[in-house]
């Protein structure tokens, strides 16, 4: 059974899902960061394989991926890192985020390796539904969950299909643009995310631009089942090149604060 199904069994679940680039800033430190984030209360993980030309990513995650690649990250080293995380946290839902070429080049064998490492689900940032037949087939034959993305300009009917075709959960992109921490949460984002709750009862997680514990709470309050924060953490890693423990402390404090909100449902009058 896919671990995300367990996580989202409760339709009122408020999951917090941090994103980390695997191997940033290096294999060992990356493991420490991920380990600490889970200890601090992360409900699931979204882990990215570094790609040198990430067109959906803003400068922060571009730099994060560049650091990981400079430190020698490869498909196999990232898979090994995932396997180690799985080894430490047998029940934790783990999803991967990749650019398609990284998986396409591995062919079917790559999917088998990821399943063996303990991955639950995979989202591809540059693979729309129309091109995904082979990918979906490989996921299914390896028992991996399929996560489609829904964008602000995805028409309602198409969104419904994407929700229906997703297994595990659906990744809702909060706004137009690349990944990156925003200083505020726009009204358009709140409206877009709120509207989707009426489209599906299936679980979805919202990502892109979310950088403050209050934003996480506001997104949860719209009825979203999960919130993903990535660039904000990559930026902490970037700004503490010689002191990863400072980044870890910041990440854990963020997660602890977020989790203190997660129990409280919004009061409806």
């Amino acid at each position: 059974m896919n671990r995300f199904h367990t996580l989202f069994r409760d339709p009122d679940a408020r999951a917090f899902i941090p994103f980390f680039t695997l191997g940033d800033p290096d294999w060992e430190t990356s493991l420490r960061i991920i380990d600490s984030a889970v200890q601090a209360g992360a409900d699931a993980l979204e882990l990215g394989f570094p790609f040198a030309d990430p067109i959906s990513d803003g400068p922060t995650n571009q730099k994060s991926m560049a650091r990981a690649l400079r430190a020698g990250s490869t498909f196999d080293s990232c898979t090994l890192l995932v396997a180690e995380v799985r080894n430490r946290f047998p029940e934790l839902p783990i999803s991967l985020l990749l650019y398609y070429n990284l998986l396409f080049c591995q062919e079917r064998e790559g999917y088998r390796k990821l399943a063996e490492a303990g991955v639950d689900a995979i989202v591809i940032s540059d693979l729309p539904m129309e091109e995904s037949a082979y990918h979906v087939d490989c996921l299914k034959s390896n028992g991996l969950g399929c996560v489609h993305m829904v964008a602000p300009n995805t028409p309602r009917d198409r969104a419904r299909t994407l929700f229906d075709e997703s297994d595990a959960f659906t990744y809702v992109i909060s706004r137009f643009g690349t990944t990156g921490a925003d200083s505020r949460l726009s009204d358009a984002t709140i409206e877009h995310v709120t509207r989707l709750r009426a489209v599906t009862e299936k679980p979805y997680a919202v990502g892109f631009g979310i950088s403050h514990p209050d934003f996480v709470r506001q997104i949860w309050d719209t009825g979203a089942n999960g919130v993903i924060v990535g660039s904000h953490f990559s930026s902490m890693i970037e700004h503490n090149p010689d002191a990863p423990e400072v980044a870890i402390e910041g990440i854990c404090a963020f997660i602890a604060e977020v989790k203190s909100h997660s129990e409280a449902r919004p009061v409806t009058l």
């Binding site: 729309p128 964008a151 994407l162």
Partner: peptide
Amino acid sequence: GGSYVPESLVHV
């Protein structure tokens, strides 16, 4: 060929 793009560009 094909069209391997992020979801935001599909509609565009």
